[in-house]
Nucleic acid binder design. Structure first.
Lengths: 231, 231
DNA sequence: ACCTGAACACCGTTCAAGT
DNA sequence: ACCTGAACACCGTTCAAGT
């Protein structure tokens, strides 16, 4: 009994909670550690997330987390899977639209939480939500008549692709674009005429660019939506 | 004169080199630091690469590297760009084949050096070789009749995509696939019937899978190679 | 049994002090 | 002017020792 333990030796019988003027330290759980990790990630980004930081926030030492997690990678994997619980499929609509909606949602979940996309790039997800999404995507591709091999390899590819786009997007929205902008600004129009001509387009496009990219991969995997397009 | 400095106070006039039985410490240069970084990356992977490790290998302290590089990220960027010097375009052939060849070469450069692919995922490349490859790819897409916006966004996408595939490949070839294989092995066929049915295919495919993935993205971007495919 | 303090072996980066 | 020793403020992980 943690409560009694903390009360031990005290003279009054008022609850410890009000005496100390803050809630008693809650017991450590795997879920609590993961939730705190996501909290810190949202507040401070990937570089601010460390086992020690999480431990401090939970009012304990770093060694205590190893009772619940084998290493930092496992924490990352659990955080990613927890965040992916928000990825759901629309119930109705053409399969192609539902496929796009799932991938878009996946991308948005990674983009909305700062730091989650770069974390996802370095993490092999195999938790329940990842599996659920894999099952969903396999079903949608199958519904679209994609053959078994293309579907299996395709799901892997789609998730990889969406994760990479999200990670790049978060590079773009962070201030880390400086070197690229600098390189583009002082670019020689004679040495690199094509890049020079395209320099405005290269940096353009926000949400539209994400939709465009998603359509490119889906077109490649299952063919264009309506008749055929001119090659 | 470093040489004289090291000779100072010695009685004999035999060269220091043979006296010490190893070459005199060469002066630090940016290129030397980058080359040593690539050497360490090849030998020990990304986790073995650190500024301190490079400094030690160059027989100096970590602070000395800051005379030539502003930070670790800059070292990563220079290493990536140096490795990309091996990416060249075939002189002849249909533009689609040349495009594929460049992307394949890019992917292979990242895959062949252990650790370079994950390094590339977290690095914004803007060195001369990156620019050269951008220029090359823009030219090839233009030759294929791709419109300006699709070409600009497409080059970004192609490089991102190829980098991500390489990074995943190096996860696959490393021993890090364990958790995924374990999850697949003890998968419930009733909860996840589609994944269960596809479990062999999911892990299959080596080089063939890379070629397939490259064709998917090119098809999506520029359309299928010959007539049209059935949607 | 469950938890953790303290240590180990590292990091990137800075800056005052060296030659 | 160019270089660097030593320090600063961190890491992930382990394990003997605590209750």
């Amino acid at each position: 009994m943690v409560f009694v333990w903390y009360c031990g030796g005290m003279e009054q019988n008022r609850p410890v909670i009000s005496r100390r003027n803050r809630p008693a330290k809650p017991p450590l759980t795997r879920e609590g550690i993961v939730a705190k990790g996501l909290e810190i990630l949202a507040a401070e980004g990937l570089s601010g997330l460390s086992l020690r930081r999480v431990a401090t926030a939970l009012d304990t030492g770093p060694a205590s987390l190893y009772v619940y997690l084998p290493n930092l990678g496992a924490l990352h994997a659990e955080m990613l899977d927890a965040a992916l619980s928000a990825v759901t499929a629309p119930a109705v609509g053409p399969w192609r639209e539902r496929l796009k909606a799932v991938l878009w949602r996946y991308m948005m979940v990674l983009i909305e939480r700062p730091g989650l996309a770069p974390l996802a790039l370095g993490t092999l997800a195999s938790g329940p939500n990842s599996l659920r999404i894999w099952e969903m995507l396999l079903g949608l591709l199958q519904e679209g008549g994609v053959d078994a091999k293309s579907a299996a390899w395709g799901v892997d590819l789609l998730i990889l692709y969406v994760t990479a786009i999200a990670a790049e997007q978060s590079l773009r929205s962070g201030g880390d674009l400086g070197p690229v902008e600098a390189a583009l600004a002082q670019l020689s129009p004679t040495v690199y005429p094509l890049i020079f001509a395209a320099r405005a387009l290269l940096l353009s496009g926000g949400e539209e660019r994400g939709h465009w990219a998603l359509n490119v991969i889906i077109d490649g995997l299952v063919g264009p939506p309506d008749p055929g397009r001119t090659a």
